[in-house]
C-alpha cells in the first residue's frame, strides 16, 4: 500500500475480536483441558485416581520452582540456579540425616530432628538466593549471568559433598531421634500426598503475596516500569533481593520433596529443572520482560507440562519425540501470547 492513510488493521468486527481475545487469554487453561481430553482418549489408564496422584506429584516439584521463578521473572529477572539448588539442598538434607553435624572440637555429633533438617535446608536455599540477589543488586551483575554462575557453584558444591555419590537410605535412626524424613515425599492426608497439600499452601500464599500485599504490588511495578517504581518510593533493590530469596526458598522446598520421595539424595538431581520452571511460567502467561503474569497461570502451566510429559510416556511416545513436542508447545504458547497482545493493542488503536 503506497499512498493514502489507511488505519492499521483491526477493522475486523469488534465482537469477533473480543471473543478471540477471551479465548487467547484462557489459552493455557484450554490447553490443559485439551491435553487431558486427548490423553484420556489415547491412553487407557490416564484418567484414574492413581494416575492423577502420580501426575500431580510430578507437577508439584516443577510447580514449586515455577512459583519462585514467576516472582523473579515478574521483576524482569531470571533465576537459572534453581535446579542446582534442588540438588544442593537435597545433599544438605541427606548429609544431616546420615551424618548429623559433627562438632570435632567436642568430639560429638549432633543429629538434628526432621524439623530442624528441613529448617536448615530451607535456610541454605534462601541463602543461595540471597547471594544471587546481592550479586544482581549490589554488584550489578546481569541476572542471567549471576544465576548461571550460581548454577555451577551450587551444583559443584553438591557434588563435592559426597564426591559425586548418592546419600542412600535417608530414614534416620530411632536412637538419634531423626526418623520421619521420607514422610514428606510419601505421606498422605485424606489419601492425597503431602507434597500436593504443601503445593496448595505455597501456591495460596504466593498468590496472596503477589496480588494482595504492597510487596506484591511493588514486584509488578518494578517489572512494569522500574523508573516509575523508584519515583513512587519503591526500593527497587530490596524488591529484587527478596524475589531471588523467595526463588531460592521455593527451590529448597522442591529439593526436600525430591530427596524425600527418593529416600536418597543424589547430587545431580534437579538438572535442567530450571528450564521446566521457566517453561511453566511462560506457558502460564508470564512475560519474560517482566510485569505480566500470575501465580495461578504458572500453576496451570506447570500442569500442562506435567500432563503432557506423563501422558506421552503412557502413550509410549519416545523420549526424543517428547522433547520435540515440548519445545513446540512452549514456543507456540509465546506466539499465542504475542498474538493476544497485538490484537489487544490494535483494538485500542482502532
Amino acid at each position: 500500500m503506497t499512498n493514502t492513510v489507511a488505519t492499521p488493521a483491526a477493522e475486523a468486527p469488534k465482537g469477533q475480536s473480543t471473543l478471540l481475545l477471551l479465548l487467547l487469554k484462557l489459552r493455557t487453561f484450554i490447553a490443559l483441558i485439551a491435553v487431558v481430553v486427548f490423553f484420556s482418549l489415547m491412553a487407557p489408564n490416564f484418567v484414574t485416581v492413581a494416575n492423577a496422584v502420580i501426575v500431580s506429584k510430578h507437577v508439584a516439584i516443577n510447580a514449586f520452582l515455577a512459583i519462585g521463578m514467576t516472582f523473579v521473572i515478574l521483576t524482569g529477572g531470571i533465576d537459572l540456579s534453581v535446579g542446582a539448588i534442588v540438588g544442593l539442598v537435597g545433599m544438605v538434607a541427606g548429609a544431616l540425616v546420615l551424618y548429623g553435624i559433627p562438632l570435632e572440637m567436642f568430639g560429638v555429633v549432633i543429629y538434628p530432628n526432621v524439623w530442624e533438617v528441613i529448617g536448615i535446608a530451607l535456610l541454605v536455599g534462601t541463602f543461595v538466593g540471597l547471594i544471587n540477589g546481592l550479586l544482581i543488586t549490589r554488584m550489578q551483575v546481569a541476572p542471567f549471568i549471576a544465576t548461571l554462575g550460581m548454577l555451577y557453584v551450587a551444583r559443584g558444591t553438591a557434588l563435592l559433598m559426597s564426591g559425586g555419590s548418592t546419600f542412600p537410605n535417608l530414614i534416620g535412626k530411632p536412637e538419634f531421634g531423626n526418623q520421619g524424613f521420607p514422610a514428606l515425599g510419601s505421606g498422605t492426608i485424606l489419601g492425597i500426598p503431602l507434597s500436593i497439600w504443601l503445593l496448595l499452601v505455597v501456591a495460596c500464599i504466593a498468590a496472596y503475596v503477589a496480588t494482595k500485599t504492597p510487596f506484591g504490588r511493588q514486584i509488578y511495578a518494578v517489572g512494569g516500569n522500574e523508573r516509575a517504581a523508584t519515583l513512587s518510593g519503591v526500593s527497587v533493590n530490596r524488591v529484587k533481593l527478596a524475589v531471588y530469596m523467595i526463588s531460592g526458598f521455593c527451590a529448597a522446598i522442591a529439593g526436600l520433596v525430591v530427596a524425600s520421595q527418593l529416600v536418597a539424595s543424589h547430587p545431580a538431581s534437579g538438572e535442567t529443572f530450571e528450564m521446566n520452571a521457566i517453561a511453566a511460567a511462560v506457558l502460564g502467561g508470564t512475560s519474560l520482560s517482566g510485569g505480566r503474569g500470575t501465580i495461578g497461570g504458572t500453576i496451570v502451566g506447570a500442569f500442562v507440562i506435567g500432563v503432557l510429559s506423563d501422558g506421552l510416556v503412557m502413550m509410549g511416545v519416545s523420549e526424543f519425540w517428547q522433547m520435540v513436542i515440548k519445545g513446540v508447545v512452549i514456543v507456540g504458547a509465546v506466539i499465542l501470547d504475542q498474538m493476544q497482545r497485538r490484537i489487544a493493542r490494535n483494538a485500542r488503536l482502532g
Binding site: 504490588r217 509488578y220 511495578a221 517489572g223 512494569g224 516500569n225 523508573r227 516509575a228 517504581a229 519515583l231 513512587s232 510485569g291 505480566r292
Partner: peptide
C-alpha cells in the same frame, strides 16, 4: 511515570 501493567488504583 506510570506502570502500564498495573491498574489506575494500583
Amino acid at each position: 511515570n506510570l506502570c502500564p501493567n498495573l491498574t489506575v488504583t494500583e
